[in-house]
Design a protein around this nucleic acid. Structure first.
Length: 552
DNA sequence: TTTAGGG
DNA sequence: CCCTAAA
């Protein structure tokens, strides 16, 4: 596994963690993860904050239709990090937890068992109780695999209301199971894997989505590359296990005898949130920020995309037969994505939303330069959703997904920033000045037609680039990358080449023509000098004897 | 995969 | 930043 960030002796600021969230997840050090994966241990979490946002989003989709979802951030010592400066959460592994901390706890050292009828936080479930099962009657608890005896407890009401909708209850149940795995001590921990690379590679994500039938799983990462999802079904068929094929969907031969197609959707690809928050922000403001982002994105507009045999099925009017979706299909050729509502593509941008309504849906509309079809693939967790639906339901799925989800979010003012991001200003946050949350659906570079988020080079980056080019020369961009940006995943050697190109151009034009963050003239002088130096000759033997930094 | 260059 | 021909 590629090393994502150094943890030893490093002092990451929150800003760094956020700005380079791809490389610096808040969670475990990747090498630790890799080691754990080798040993097939449970991996707790590797979770950049933007992904935290989405994990929360996933959870909220499922279980918080009637209420808010509190995000708990804990460190290894089990201290709830709420209210402290997030900069404190560097080396520890902040974890996002459910709104029901009595149900699951997710810290490095501690855990609590699910409150099944037989056991509680003070009396952990025995190891024989391998899985937590939530049945179809709003119960949850443990199952004794040897005796098949269940220890269920009726699910609590949320905000004093029994969950009304069937979908809601199903969701809640699914999400409650989300990411829970028994640890070796017999308790249960949340388990995440947000390894982006693997997620991309495996084109897999886990998205718990309302559907007709839900079954339960204990998710096990059997290995690093192939985290199959083991389903454990809560009904009498509890011994039945299913292994997810590709994190997508499989077509199950129907038993109806007619032409119905049964789909078992293993997962959805989901978009991703990017959140930027001041380093001085408190955890509670972070929570709120994440909440806002979640509410924004799940509020409206998400609908379902269908990908069949690697191609997106764009024609909604096609029948399944015309599309080729049938029971004969092999596993994995059908996939679903969550994506912005297409009708909002050109909709105007709203600035205010009535109270008690969701924030503006603008994050869901394709942002200028942003990917209109974010398919950031999320493995994301170890549970999956087993569902069966008839073919006729497929077209309706977007309908249900579009259904507004009640979510207690403050009115948010949403603005479009000039650089293809959305700024969500959240009022009432306790971080002094205005909190600005940038929400931008990041593009998936592995998907065609998706533009990456714009990330202007900082002066420091320019300095590093200039220095590398001074010594290596232009034209060795791979070396430049390895030398100066090896640990910066989002800067490719093409990016560096492009940046050098613009730097040379910038250096040649007059200062008042320059835009963006001003690069110090001294740096630009070095650019020109290096450019001239390396332009003198294309052959090394004709080069001046000393590099540009030392020459002249 | 990298480089190089136009868009 | 994207796209892509060419190496």
């Amino acid at each position: 596994m590629e090393k994502l960030f150094e943890s030893e002796g490093q002092d990451y600021s929150l800003k760094e963690q956020f700005s380079s969230h791809e490389e610096s997840p808040l969670g475990f050090a990747p090498d630790v993860m890799a080691e754990n994966l080798k040993q097939q241990k449970t991996i707790e979490m590797e979770c950049p904050v933007n992904e935290v946002a989405f994990s929360s989003h996933l959870k909220s989709l499922g279980r918080n239709l009637d209420g808010g979802c509190e995000i708990m951030v804990k460190d290894k010592s089990e201290k709830v990090m709420s209210g402290v400066n997030m900069a404190m959460c560097r080396s520890p592994d902040p974890v996002v937890c459910d709104r029901n901390p009595h149900m699951w706890i997710c810290s490095e050292n501690g855990f609590k068992v699910p409150p099944c009828k037989d056991h509680g936080p003070q009396h952990p479930c025995p190891t024989s109780q391998e899985v937590v099962v939530i049945d179809d009657d709003n119960n949850f608890g443990c199952i004794y695999p040897t005796t098949s005896r269940n220890s269920f407890r009726t699910a609590p009401c949320i905000k004093g209301h029994r969950i009304r909708k069937i979908l809601a209850s199903k969701n809640w149940k699914v999400a409650a199971k989300y990411g829970v795995k028994k640890n070796k001590s017999g308790g249960y921990k949340r388990k995440f894997n947000f390894n982006k690379r693997n997620s991309f590679k495996n084109q897999r994500s886990q998205m718990n989505i309302p559907f007709k039938k839900r079954k339960l799983f204990d998710g096990c990462f059997s290995d690093c590359n192939d985290r199959r999802i083991v389903d454990r079904i809560s009904d009498s068929n509890a011994s039945a296990r299913e292994t997810s094929a590709h994190g997508k969907s499989s077509l199950v031969a129907g038993q109806q005898g007619d032409s119905r197609v049964k789909l078992r959707i293993k997962s959805f690809r989901v978009p991703e949130l990017f959140i930027e928050i001041p380093e001085s922000a408190t955890v509670s403001s972070l929570k709120r920020t994440v909440m806002e982002a979640m509410g924004t994105i799940i509020g409206r507009g998400i609908h379902i995309g269908v990908i069949f045999r690697g191609k997106k099925v764009r024609d909604d009017n096609k029948t399944l037969i015309q599309t080729g979706i049938s029971c004969d299909n092999q596993d994995g050729c059908l996939g679903f994505t969550l994506e912005p509502h297409s009708s909002q593509t050109h909709s105007s941008f709203c600035h205010k939303e009535p109270p008690s309504m969701l924030p503006c849906i603008s994050t869901l509309e394709p942002i200028n330069g942003c990917n209109p079809n974010p398919t950031m693939d999320y493995l994301g967790n170890n549970s999956t959703l087993l569902l069966e639906t008839h073919a006729s339901k497929v077209n309706n799925s977007s309908e249900s997904a579009r259904e507004p989800v009640p979510f207690p979010v403050d009115t948010a003012v949403v603005e479009r920033s000039s650089d293809s991001k959305l700024l969500v200003t959240v009022p009432g946050m306790d971080v002094g000045a205005t909190n600005v949350v940038q929400i931008c659906r990041k593009s998936n570079q592995f998907e065609v037609g998706h533009r990456r988020m714009r990330r202007p080079f900082s002066v420091d980056e320019v300095e590093a680039l200039v220095h590398a080019v001074e010594t290596l020369g232009p034209g060795r961009w791979r070396d430049v990358k390895l030398r100066a940006f090896d640990n910066v995943k989002h800067r490719t050697y093409v990016d560096l080449k492009d940046k050098w190109k613009t730097l040379v151009h910038t250096a040649k034009i007059s200062p008042h023509q320059r835009r963006g963050e001003q690069v110090p003239q001294q740096l630009l002088d070095r650019v020109l000098k290096a450019h001239a130096y390396w332009s003198l000759s294309s052959t090394p033997e004709n080069l001046p004897s000393s590099p540009p930094t030392k020459s002249i």
